[in-house]
Amino acid sequence: MNFFKRFAQNRGALVGLVILGLVVLLALLAPFLYPDSPWRMVQRPFLAPGEVSGFWLGTDVMGRDVAAGLAHGAWVSLLIGLISTVVALAIGVPLGALAGYFGGKIDDALMRFTEFFQTIPNFALAIVLVAIMEPSTFSIVLAIAIVSWPPVARLVRGEFLSIKHREYVEAARLVGQTHRDIIIKQILPNTLSPVIVLASLMVATAILLESSLSFLGLGDPDTMSWGYMIGAARTVMRQAWWLSVIPGVAILLTVLALNLVGEGLDDALNPQLARAR
């Protein structure tokens, strides 16, 4: 249980894990805590936090419960962060693996392809993709995945390049294992730790990206996400600062927690580096 011990040594990572756990809990409990739609207009608009009991975070411009929005938004933000990261991994890992394993022309072609996507400014591409597919959870997830897979591909390729000539891989090759088996069973498991660290950071970036898109009005109109809440509160920031501060802090804490956890994972999974700190 070396891994957990090392992870626990990083106090920041523990704090991050606790915060993240709370956010996940909030997301999971949302349907039970606030069974009604978070869009329902339930009280006077612009109630300050605590002004009326039962609405401990107040109400928004239309009299919707901010706490309900926050809880349902946790679910949406985490889900968009997770799914888009999974999709990005699903694109980036195979491409990186193939490029690194086979090298030569395949590597060249795949890296050109990766470079191509890295040459178009990320955020601009995400905006264009969402605008073209029209804002919906699907298009947002896809757009975020499309702009965030290249670093995964590069990382995995690098790992494959350094591992593929190790003895145990050569041995597997001599035994006559297929390329597929070598890639999936021999090399891939050994590249996992840096990929996991990167993935935890990607979830954080995806949450930020989704909130930026929502801020520009490119969010899914049917889901209450934190980015949507900030975007909608922007015009009333002067009258009701809490409407933009509350979801803003929620995003900040979640992203912070994910980063702390990522660092902890990095320490725990790459012990050589951890000792350096």
């Binding site: 869009w39 329902r40 207009m41 411009v61 239309m62 009005g217 109109p221 909608a232």
Partner: peptide, 10 residues
């Protein structure tokens, strides 16, 4: 207009 659509939907 966005808020309005939300109110109409509701």
């Amino acid at each position: 207009w966005t808020r309005w659509a939300e109110a109409v939907r509701q």
